[in-house]
Design a binder for these strands. Structure first.
Lengths: 231, 231
DNA sequence: TATTTTATTTTTGTCGACAATTTTGGCGAC
DNA sequence: GTCGCCAAAATTGTCGACAAAAATAAAATA
């Protein structure tokens, strides 16, 4: 997800297009249910349909995009069950990830994480929600990378992006990103190499996010009018 | 992975082709480094190149296939580092999966798991290695499904297939599938709803598999002659 | 004979055309 | 105003042609 400043001089690679769409999801610029027309993306990225279709398959495999035969590609709209599964999976994986990170984290990495938190807070202070929410998610992804297992880090990355969609669907207006305070507390536990505290804080953090989701028990339509009228 | 008896009357769907290749990997019929020529697969499955290329992207996303630009698709050849990452990821995820399964498993599901173990043992007794190794892996996948979280189950399924490749590369002749005894002990712990024992046994089981891998500390070439000569 | 270079064949990557399906808009009936 | 029908437009799915790259075979050279 580092291709955000890429100039559109040469045709974008598959990975770059995937990253761009990922980022748009993380920043809530692409909402659940949004249609991704092939020709629009071809024009946007200056590539052929073959490439776009390949990117769609990649994103579908990561649960970010839903492919409907003869109807096209849409940003995925998680169901309440899926939301619960994702959060449970995050709790299971991220508690072990954070424990490992607490064991091995370096001072340099602490600073890097601190920069994510600070950057997110600064962005939120100037109502730059997109930047704030993206950095918030990237804090978790970075943490998973610090833990040193690329397999688990890839799972976390996928789960964080899917969480972004879940929050877009089921979140309230106040819950657009993680709590800065909770990230700071996590960072402190990591700094102290306190696995138990870090683990407990991560559990609490994820449960907190999940609890703020509304109507997770009820059936809602993707991006439906009822949510909009309930402003 | 239930499409093994599918007759080739109608063109295979993407999912069916994916499943068939998955199964071939699980059964060691497709070895690490094996090339998957597009035209061969087109002929085998009676479909066009578009579909095969789509299937390749799916399998690449799951770490089963490596796509090399201008050179084609190959069954992935895990490195020692990747092997360690996969096993660590399995330990982290499967210990939580087995704990959840111990909490919620039903008598019917116990029987189903028992069938996997018995089927694997029967296959091994008649030197049907392919069947034995496939059922051995499917025991883990089924267990993950019993735990009830489809997100984690999909991760486990991917990790099990990748483990198959790892064992194909780094396993000795005796370690072609899991230990029936260890699976039975796991099943007993599940039957007793003994989370702690189930968790400990799963840890031990995965560590046992990993320990039996040879030369994980040394550099080896994919599917190289040295391994063959060391028969 | 072994190695290097060149030519040929094979395979993969990309594109555009066409078919198939879905969506949209217009129109008439109620 | 709403609904249903139908045609047109738009979009997706598939295929084959051709270009590009890699692999293989043949020829040339040391």
């Amino acid at each position: 997800m580092d291709a955000r400043n890429q100039e559109s001089r040469s045709p974008a690679s598959d990975g770059q297009i995937v990253d761009r769409i990922f980022a748009a999801v993380m920043e809530r610029r692409l909402q659940p249910g949004a249609k991704l027309p092939e020709n629009v993306l071809c024009d946007t990225f200056g590539v052929s349909r073959s490439q776009i279709r390949r990117v769609f398959v990649v994103l579908a495999e990561r649960g970010i995009v839903a492919l409907h035969p003869n109807r096209g590609a849409f940003i995925a709209s998680p169901t309440p069950d899926e939301a619960r599964d994702v959060f449970e999976a995050r709790r299971k994986i991220e508690r072990s990830v954070v424990a490992e990170a607490a064991r091995r984290i370096t001072a340099k990495q602490i600073e890097e994480l601190r920069n994510y938190i600070a950057g997110g807070a600064a962005a939120a202070a100037v109502e730059n929600r997109q930047e704030a929410v993206r950095l918030s998610g990237e804090f978790h992804v970075k943490l998973a990378k610090i833990a040193g297992n690329p397999v688990l880090a890839r799972f976390v990355e996928e789960l964080v992006a899917r969480t972004s969609l879940i929050i877009a669907m089921f979140g309230s207006r106040q819950s657009f990103s993680c709590s800065e305070q909770e990230h700071n507390a996590l960072l402190k536990a990591l700094e102290d190499h306190d696995e138990a505290r870090a683990t407990a804080l991560m559990d609490h953090h994820l449960e907190h996010i999940e609890r703020e989701l509304v109507v997770l028990d009820a059936e809602t339509e993707p991006a439906d009018i009822r949510k909009i009228l309930a402003l």
